[in-house]
Design a protein around this nucleic acid. Structure first.
Lengths: 149, 149
DNA sequence: CCTTGACCTTCCAACGATGGGAAGCCCCAT
DNA sequence: ATGGGGCTTCCCATCGTTGGAAGGTCAAGG
């Protein structure tokens, strides 16, 4: 099976298959006399594994671990769970980070009239950020950053 | 004011200041006789603007637009709002993407016993993804992907 | 004056994962 | 045998940021 066929069968592009091989994520494929790489259905199986892990956002380093665990019949499922949980925690952190950005942007966008006039609270905030430091120990009065007019 | 001082005053690293200048995001700084870049408080102000925009996740292309609008006294706030809204939509899409990953991972992690045994639904899913195609037009019965035992 | 250490300059490389493309060889069908 | 498509390797680009090397500059202290 050529690399193109393996690519179509696995959903991993030929480019990426070569890259994964080059970086050692997957073992070097066998070669025909012509120099063409040759893939078995097991190889495709492995590529689909990698593809699925990529779709779930695992880094190549994590996929490396997962592949090792996959091949290790005496693995402990706890090890797999640890890798997946760590990844999930990182994803949640990224989501929290993005959500914070979105929340701030939404506030600013809500405050912007969005018309022909130049006055814009969005630019005003970029220029001089409002001190929205949500205190972990709120000692003062609750702030109303977005009072509806 | 040297680049290091401007960096500390703006929160943008000296490396990035040079990079922003090189790519045309910010105008070239003035130079002393020694060749050192020289920054005014207005330059720092602009750098703080860029920093804040970066913190909100804007791409450099978007920051370029925002800087132009910032400098344009006859801007229409609608244009600023459009840039911010487009960015917010993209952030929301990224959040949705990550959330989908997290949801799948959470399901898998919940199903994994995480002990010394090798059986692992996480690896099983990576190997052969469960066909969880949530239909946009659910014609059949609701699926129960995670029935509590 | 000279040294020393901190600072500045430019240039080059790397990260992570992927895409694009060029130059050249191989395979298969007409 | 010829054409077209697939394969090979190699290089470059992305995006924003960091790191380092080699060399010039500044300021303080001996």
């Amino acid at each position: 099976m050529n690399i193109g066929q393996a690519a179509r069968a696995s959903g991993v592009s030929a480019k990426m298959i070569r890259y994964y091989e080059q970086t050692g994520l997957i073992p070097p494929a066998g070669r025909r006399d012509s120099g063409y790489r040759d893939y078995s259905s097991e190889d495709v199986h492995m590529l689909r594994f990698v593809r699925r892990a990529r779709d779930l956002g695992f880094s190549m380093a994590a996929i490396n671990e997962l592949l090792d665990l996959w091949r290790d019949r005496s693995r402990r499922s706890a090890d797999v769970k640890r890798v997946a949980t760590a990844h999930m925690i990182e994803l949640r952190e990224r989501i929290a980070h993005l959500s914070q950005m979105v929340a701030t942007l939404q506030t600013l966008v809500d405050c912007c009239s969005g018309d022909h006039r130049p006055d814009c609270p969005i630019l005003a905030d970029l220029e001089e950020p409002a001190e929205e430091h949500p205190r972990k120990h709120p000692s003062g009065a609750l702030q109303r950053p977005n009072p509806r007019p």
